[in-house]
């Protein structure tokens, strides 16, 4: 893990100072982590605001399987299906509106605004 990070820094150091500061700003200093629960066949939030670079952990709190996916342009992902107690992270790396759903239960929907 450390090695990879160092390499990344080395590569980045070749870029201009401006870019370096920008990337440090957005990925290291300010990125946050959020948690969204899937409970009683619903996401526990209808909307969530995050910043570019933030991570959202989707956790299943129901005694059966859920899925999480989005076909939105700002973030396209499919987390497959996972049981109670498990969670999967998604990093939102582009600004925009992301509609998040569960494919198994189409009534489960939420919107993540990435700023």
């Amino acid at each position: 893990m450390k090695c990879i990070k160092l390499n990344a820094w080395k590569r980045k150091s070749k870029l201009t100072l401006q870019v370096l500061i920008l990337s440090a700003f957005s990925t290291v200093a300010y990125s946050e982590t959020f948690k969204v629960l899937q409970k009683d066949k619903a996401f526990d939030k209808e909307t969530l605001q995050v910043k570019v670079g933030d991570t959202v952990h989707f956790e299943n709190a129901d005694p059966f399987f859920h899925n999480v996916f989005s076909l939105s342009d700002a973030k396209f992902f499919d987390l497959g299906s996972f049981p109670k107690g498990e969670s999967r992270p998604v990093i939102f790396d582009k600004a925009g509106t992301v509609e998040v759903e569960c494919a198994i239960h189409p009534n489960m929907k939420m919107v993540i605004e990435v700023k």
Partner: peptide, 14 residues
């Protein structure tokens, strides 16, 4: 099945 509406692997044959 549902895959034609939601092209996700999980929905094949659902």
């Amino acid at each position: 099945g549902r895959y034609t509406e939601r092209p996700l692997r999980l929905m094949k044959g659902a």
